[in-house]
């Protein structure tokens, strides 16, 4: 069984696999949508870097929806 770790996702404590990347968390939390903005520990992460961005214990992840109404 893969080891788990605790992180914060959108302000909530969550238990996720220890080998998570930003990409795998986006799938896990069903955030795969075109207007997603992803943040790791308060830093914006480029979409092309999601797969290579490892997430560690205690990290803070935020998934935000950009909005296009006016």
């Amino acid at each position: 069984m893969a080891q788990d770790m605790e992180i914060t996702v959108n302000g909530m404590m969550e238990t996720v696999p220890r080998d998570s990347t930003l990409d795998s968390l986006i799938v896990l939390f069903e955030e795969e949508h075109p207007e997603l903005i992803a943040e790791l520990n308060g830093r914006f992460v480029h979409r092309q870097d999601y797969a290579a961005t490892k997430v560690g214990p205690g990290d803070r992840v935020e998934f935000i929806n950009a909005a296009f109404g006016g």
Binding site: H33, P34, Q48, N65, A67
Partner: peptide
Amino acid sequence: SGQLLVVRPGKGPCLQCWAPEEPREPLKH
């Protein structure tokens, strides 16, 4: 909710620097 960005061509990132791929409808939000 929403977002705000100032784009100054040649002086800093533009909208597509932040989000290279245009979000296609339907949007989640």
